[in-house]
Design a protein around this nucleic acid. Structure first.
Lengths: 145, 145
DNA sequence: TCATTTTACATCGTGCACGATTTAATATAT
DNA sequence: ATATATTAAATCGTGCACGATGTAAAATGA
């Protein structure tokens, strides 16, 4: 059936564009801090739970070691994170926030918040959109096809 | 206000994950054809309108020359596309489908369609989701902040 | 006409994102 | 107890994605 295919094609493309648009918007806000969007996501995780394992960060963000390891290393080089071998399991490494990164929580969150407020659109029902996206992602999570 | 910020943070992340999930799903279907998701998007454009300029492809997909040029070159190397200098404007290059790429339209579309049908979820209201995403992307398109 | 600006494309450097492979540590299963 | 398997990270290669810069062609303007 043509119709169903076409709809789904457009859906994947709209999601693709929305992700690109969000990333660009965040990139502009984060640029003065010397942060990328993905690095910001790592900080979001650690601001919520500090001193966690690489694998736990990867699991929360849906990123593998091939992606996450270089990001963490760059953030260590930036002086934002530290990595320490776990005593319980010598394979595992515990990632922690530096004082600098802790101090950045407030100003960065404010910068993002200010941007979102200044952009608020009445045409976009964020609550409804979130609900649909969560269903979609939950669905993807369960199917591993 | 904390609440508004938190919602938007989650929204950008849900969009980010949804895009990643779609890309992975499409990648698996396209892998037997030796195509990436982005290359498939280029084909979607050309299957609709053949013999168009680089800049028009870039505009439709929201990609700049730094991204698009290497993709087009790889697809030329694959024998899927050809590029010819425009006679009207010697700066511009016209991209066209090879016979191979035209012949692939049907089997690739069917493979994608079969995958989507086999995955159809009653929990996801695709129509509603599309509507919200289109509003969101239209909004991004108008603000260039 | 001729200098200036704009446009279309090419190139470069950085940073994801992914799958595949490797290495070391731990768990398991005889 | 020891071979096997699994796990946590690191590494590698490919392919986006983006901004910045370069180049040539075309459009603009005094």
């Amino acid at each position: 059936m043509e119709h169903g295919l076409k709809l789904e094609q457009q859906l994947c493309f709209e999601v693709y564009k929305a992700s690109s648009n969000f990333t660009k918007m965040y990139a502009r806000v984060l640029e003065p801090f010397g942060l990328t969007f993905t690095q910001y996501l790592v900080l979001l995780v650690l601001w919520e739970d500090d001193h966690i394992l690489m694998k736990d960060i990867g699991q929360r963000l849906g990123l593998g070691t091939g992606t996450l390891n270089p990001i963490i290393n760059r953030m260590i080089a930036q002086g934002r994170l530290t990595k320490a071998q776990s005593l319980d399991d010598k394979r595992a490494w515990i990632v922690s926030l530096s004082d600098k990164a802790k101090a950045e929580h407030e100003p960065i969150s404010r910068a993002i918040h200010d941007k979102l407020v200044s952009c608020a659109s009445p045409d976009v029902d964020a609550v409804e959109l979130m609900k649909n996206l969560k269903s979609l992602n939950a669905f993807f999570g369960e199917m591993d096809l």
